[in-house]
């Protein structure tokens, strides 16, 4: 099964790398860039929700915080790469600060706190006008530059995001398949048993919040510098649900699920453009259908099918996509 994973990964990245060559449609490429930006945050959400079992309804807030921190730093003359990294670290710290006081909370109660926390973040961004320009948002955010070359065209933007996503998928795969990933999954399954086996639930829960928030913050930073503007309304709680939808549709607790989900949920509404503002409804409807009909999402369902086909083989479990 490991071999299947490798084959899948190979085809996935090969197709992804060839897309700009085949695809002459710049607008579609732009959408893919947006999808890849979202997939970074969705991957972070997946670490917390899919691998540690803590349903977050507040990742849009962390995403937004990352976008604003990076945008503001770079608007104050901090080099863009430094600003982006700082945004990731800042949001990770905020995630840790959110993780510590909520250690005693389980299930939906925790989810609610993440939701409220994210709402407060956005309200502060809206109301702190002297710093954030309030509801108007920030414009003219400098693009990512490498030497004298700036990432403003779709093709280089696409390759940059593809590289970043590849790196982050790789890091996530390493985490998930290591002793740390095992500890997180143990916590998802039973916190009591994990604690009894010598795993400090507090430590790893907070760590999961930190890693997850780092991804979210980095995703936000990409949003700022690749799209060039930010508005607080891009990060409201409906967007948190949008991110969850990406994870669920792609496959919760799977490596490539959030990426596939982000791409699908970004591209799909474009085919229904006859309706204005149809994106959120479509997202919600697709998510409900998946929740009912295929709770494993695309990747989870494909894995289940593959497993059924190879039922005779004893190693047919968990191909770890």
């Amino acid at each position: 099964m490991r071999a299947n994973t490798k084959t899948f990964s190979l085809y996935f990245w090969l197709v992804a790398a060839l897309l700009p060559v085949v695809l002459r449609n710049i607008y579609l490429l732009h959408l893919l860039v947006v999808a890849l930006i979202y997939s970074v945050t969705a991957m972070g959400l997946n670490i917390l929700t899919g691998y540690t079992g803590k349903l977050s309804l507040g990742h849009a807030g962390l995403f937004g915080l990352g976008a604003y921190v990076s945008a503001l730093l770079s608007l104050h003359e901090v080099p863009v790469p430094v600003a982006m990294l700082a945004a990731g670290i800042a949001v990770a710290s905020v995630g840790v600060l959110l993780g510590i006081p909520t250690l005693k909370l389980q299930g939906h109660y925790l989810s609610i706190v993440t939701l409220g926390f994210s709402e407060i973040l956005i309200l502060i961004i809206i109301n702190w006008k002297s710093l954030t320009n309030g509801p108007g948002g920030l414009r003219g955010i400098p693009p990512i530059s490498i030497g004298s070359f700036s990432l403003v065209d779709e093709v280089p933007q696409y390759y940059f995001m593809l590289g970043l996503v590849a790196l982050l998928v790789w890091v996530k795969a390493r985490i998930v398949h290591s002793h740390v990933g095992l500890a997180l999954r143990a916590i998802m399954d039973s916190e009591t048993a994990a604690e009894a086996m010598g795993i400090s639930v507090a430590y790893y829960r907070v760590m999961a919040f930190g890693i997850s928030s780092f991804y979210a913050g980095l995703g936000g930073a990409c949003f700022s510098h690749l799209l060039g503007y930010v508005s607080p309304y891009s990060f409201q709680s409906a967007e948190s649900f949008g991110l969850l939808g990406m994870v669920v549709v792609g496959g919760i607790g799977t490596l490539y699920g959030p990426v596939l989900g982000a791409v699908l949920m970004t591209l799909l509404p474009e085919y229904f453009r006859a309706f204005a503002d149809f994106r959120l409804i479509l997202n919600a409807v697709v998510t409900i259908i998946l929740l009912i009909k295929a709770p494993g999402g695309i990747v989870g369902t494909v894995q289940a099918l593959a497993r059924r086909r190879q039922l005779s083989a004893p190693t047919a479990r968990g191909c770890g996509l």
């Binding site: 390493r174 740390v180 990933g181 095992l182 500890a183 010598g198």
Partner: peptide, 27 residues
Amino acid sequence: LLFRQMTALENVMVARHTKLRAKPYNA
């Protein structure tokens, strides 16, 4: 109180946690 979603081997491996020299960053 097992980790129901994990394999038998993974269940046992989880319990080796305190005996590992590897730190979290070694993931």
